[in-house]
Computed example of a mutant assay.
Amino acid sequence: MKKAILILCVISIGFLMSCSNNAKDKINPKNVTTADVRDAKAKLLPAITFTKTNHDFGTINEGDIVEHNFTFTNTGNAPLVIINAKGSCGCTVSKWTKEPIAPGAKGDMLVRFNSNGKPNLQNKQVTITTNTEKGKEILKIKAMVTPKGKTAISGTPLSE
């Protein structure tokens, strides 16, 4: 039994010693250059930075159509492209620049909310699809909608 264990140990040590080839001798220099170029290009990405991502319209009357302009800057080092902007419901519509936005340039995203048929507290969001590393950004809007038949005065709904 002791002989068998000793033989297994010697064989194991022999295998371990034979696997100690230097790994860096197997690296192809052409592949290193290709990887360096690929990694340098990966760093050239646009980045979108909004001045603010939330907006509260306050108290509005049902049926009001309100809008807010969200301003952003391309803080990356490649042209920014906004592919799509989709509201969480059909009552929220967005308009944006369709052309690429150069690094350092500013842009606007107009968000319009139609409160018709949307009484009480409303929280909506717009999901923006871009060519940034993250790929998606979210803008949020909020409004307290006074139901029809009541009127908002100075931000306070009146009872009937």
Rank of each mutant, 00 (worst) to 15 (best):
D56P: 08
T33G: 00
I65M: 03
A35T: 15
V93R: 11
G87S: 04
T130N: 05
I153M: 11
A42G: 04
S159T: 09
I128V: 15
T71Y: 08
I60H: 06
G155S: 07
G117K: 07
R112L: 07
T130V: 06
T51E: 13
N31P: 00
E67V: 00
P29R: 10
P147F: 04
S12M: 10
C89E: 13
T73M: 05
K95M: 12
I83H: 05
I128D: 06
G155I: 00
I83W: 01
G58L: 03
M144H: 07
R38L: 14
G104W: 05
T92A: 10
T92L: 14
K86P: 00
V66D: 08
D25R: 11
T51S: 10
E133V: 07
K26M: 12
N131P: 10
I138Q: 11
I65E: 13
E99I: 07
L45K: 12
A78S: 14
V126I: 07
G104V: 05
K95N: 15
A78T: 01
T75P: 02
K3P: 00
K140T: 12
A143F: 05
C89V: 05
R112G: 01
F50N: 05
D64P: 00
I13H: 02
N28I: 15
T75R: 02
L110S: 09
K118Y: 12
E133K: 15
C89W: 11
F70T: 09
S94K: 01
F113N: 01
G135K: 08
I141F: 06
K86Q: 10
N28R: 06
L44Y: 03
K118A: 08
K30S: 11
P46I: 03
K3E: 14
T73H: 00
I153E: 14
G90V: 08
T130M: 01
V111D: 03
I11K: 00
S154I: 00
L44C: 09
N74H: 03
T129G: 06
A152D: 13
